[in-house]
Amino acid sequence: MKIFKIKKLTVILIMIIIINLLLGFKDPSPSAESAVLIDSKTGRIMYSLNHDLKRPMASTTKIMTALLAIEHGDLDSIVKVKDSAVGVEGSSIYLAKNEEILLKDLIYGLMLRSGNDAAVAIAEHISGSIDKFVILMNEKAKDIGALNTNFVNPHGLHDSNHYSTAYDLAIITREAMKLDFFREVSKTKTWVANREINQHFLNKNDVLWDYKGGDGVKIGYTKAAGRCLVASATRDEMQLIAVVINDGNWFNDCYRMFDFGFENYKPTLLISKGQFLKKIKISNGYKDYFNLLSEDDLIIPLKDEEKEKAKIILNLPDSLSAPIYKGQKLGNIQVFLEGELLHTAEIKSMLEISKPKSKNNFIKFLKSIF
């Protein structure tokens, strides 16, 4: 009888596990102090653990440094290394005083080898000094919405006033992922810099080798911050960003979060590229109205049970006055799920509508009379 009860309990446990697997109820349960998983395109949070907890973030700082270097610098410009960028504590690409190196190579050294000296050289090249570059870093963080972040250096060496959160690191990375060159650097396994020595850079990020679809981003470690990882992976045209802070099991925890995201959420097409959105009246134009079409596909990661619940709101005017320029912002699309705003996408004009010439104005005037 006792054996029968044990077998029955075992069967029940196996059934519960199978049901949970089928329904996708697996919680990744990272051992991190804080963690978050988001969709790169929309920013939707798929999983979080203390995601707004302010903590030191070590070399994941360099994501912002790379972002600003790409936005404000000429990738093919020559950087002359100052004495202040030589012999910086911690990870290094071994820059020499007065060495001349491409900004592009510095960014690869920054992201793949986590060169603290590369971070200093980049900061001084872009802004003239570390202090001015830090101002740029904090301004960019606020613009992105990373409101719980404060930078005091470009590399992440410990300082009590240098901190971020799992969520802020995720949205900073999401912003960086909009840049083609950042995405390319982030997924590069090896790079050969245009210099005579120490030119081979091997990426320290195991995600690129160990996880199917892994394509970034940055590891970091200091004694105060612990092991920090910002990782990305893409499958079925859906890119996820996972962040863990102070996590001894950093890679495996990110992999479990990725599995959770890919198993539970599917990219769902809500609006197709070229789809009719609204007929808008035009005043003072060479035409009286135009049909506004969607410029791109609108794809949102949703669970199966959410697909019928998603609501689309078009915030568009009923009429506009010419001239209207191609690329002009006209309004936005908002996607809601049970009252929660999931995503906002700008709607821009795909056409240019100018004012009519004076002759056409006169003809329209006559038509309005007769």
Rank of each mutant, 00 (worst) to 15 (best):
Q334D: 15
L157N: 07
K80G: 05
L240N: 01
E71M: 03
S31V: 11
P356C: 12
S160Q: 15
K80Y: 08
I17P: 05
D253E: 03
P301N: 05
Q328T: 09
C254Q: 07
E33R: 06
V244N: 01
H162R: 01
I299V: 09
I45H: 07
G73W: 08
D180W: 04
M238G: 11
T344F: 02
T190N: 15
E346F: 06
K187W: 04
A96E: 15
G216D: 04
F251H: 13
I122N: 04
V86Q: 01
I78S: 11
V86A: 03
A85V: 10
M257W: 02
V230A: 06
W209V: 06
K355D: 05
S232A: 08
G214I: 02
G156M: 11
P356H: 12
I38H: 09
W250C: 09
V88C: 04
I282Q: 01
G145D: 01
F4K: 14
D117C: 14
E295T: 14
L67C: 02
N194S: 12
A242W: 06
E33V: 09
V217H: 01
I19Q: 08
D297F: 10
D76A: 03
K178Q: 06
F251Y: 15
K348I: 10
P56E: 12
M57V: 15
C228F: 01
Q328M: 13
V11C: 07
I171N: 05
I17H: 09
V11T: 10
K97H: 09
I6L: 14
I107V: 08
F251S: 07
R113P: 03
P28F: 06
L75I: 14
V120R: 04
E340I: 13
D247H: 11
T173F: 00
I107R: 04
A322L: 09
